[in-house]
Lab assay of single mutants.
Amino acid sequence: MKVTIEENEETGKFTIKVKTEDGEEKTIEIPKENLEEILAKLPPNVEII
C-alpha cells in the first residue's frame, strides 16, 4: 500500500491519496490538526510518499 500526502497551503488541509496492492485508489482531505492521528493509525507495511 502506498500513501501520498500533499499539503494544500490555501485551505490548510492535507490531501491523502491511498493506492492499495490491488490498484484501488482513494483520496481524502483532512485538517492539518488530524494528520498525526491519521498517521498513527496506518499499518506498518505502508509506504509513505
Rank of each mutant, 00 (worst) to 15 (best):
M1Q: 05
M1Y: 05
M1R: 03
M1L: 09
M1G: 05
M1I: 13
M1A: 08
K2R: 13
K2A: 05
V3T: 02
V3L: 04
T4Y: 14
T4D: 02
T4F: 14
I5D: 01
E6I: 14
E6L: 10
E6S: 10
E7H: 12
E7K: 09
E7T: 05
N8K: 03
N8D: 09
E9F: 12
E10Y: 11
T11G: 08
T11A: 03
T11H: 03
T11S: 07
T11K: 12
T11Q: 03
T11V: 02
G12Q: 04
G12A: 01
G12H: 04
K13C: 15
F14H: 15
F14A: 15
F14S: 15
T15C: 07
T15M: 08
T15S: 06
T15R: 10
I16P: 10
I16F: 02
K17F: 10
K17A: 06
V18Q: 00
V18I: 15
V18W: 15
V18Y: 14
K19D: 03
K19T: 14
K19F: 14
T20A: 06
T20V: 04
T20C: 15
T20R: 04
E21K: 10
E21I: 12
E21P: 12
E21F: 08
D22I: 04
D22K: 06
G23Y: 02
G23Q: 03
G23K: 02
E24S: 11
E24T: 12
E24M: 11
E24C: 15
E25S: 06
E25M: 09
E25A: 04
K26N: 08
K26D: 04
K26Y: 15
K26R: 12
T27D: 02
T27S: 08
T27W: 14
T27K: 05
T27H: 07
T27V: 14
I28S: 03
I28H: 04
I28F: 14
E29T: 11
E29P: 02
I30M: 05
I30Q: 00
I30T: 04
I30A: 04
I30S: 03
I30E: 00
P31I: 07
P31D: 15
P31Q: 11
P31N: 13
K32N: 04
E33G: 09
N34M: 15
N34T: 08
L35H: 01
L35R: 01
L35W: 07
L35D: 00
E36L: 13
E36S: 11
E37W: 07
E37P: 03
I38H: 06
I38K: 01
I38L: 13
I38T: 08
L39S: 00
L39Q: 00
L39N: 00
A40Q: 07
A40C: 10
A40V: 04
A40R: 11
K41F: 09
K41C: 15
K41M: 13
L42P: 00
L42F: 13
L42V: 02
P43Q: 06
P43K: 06
P43R: 08
P43D: 06
P44E: 08
P44D: 07
P44H: 12
P44S: 09
N45R: 05
N45A: 05
V46Q: 03
V46A: 10
V46C: 11
V46R: 03
E47M: 10
E47I: 14
E47H: 11
I48S: 03
I48T: 04
I48C: 08
I48W: 11
I48P: 03
I49W: 02
I49R: 05
I49E: 06
I49V: 10
I49D: 04
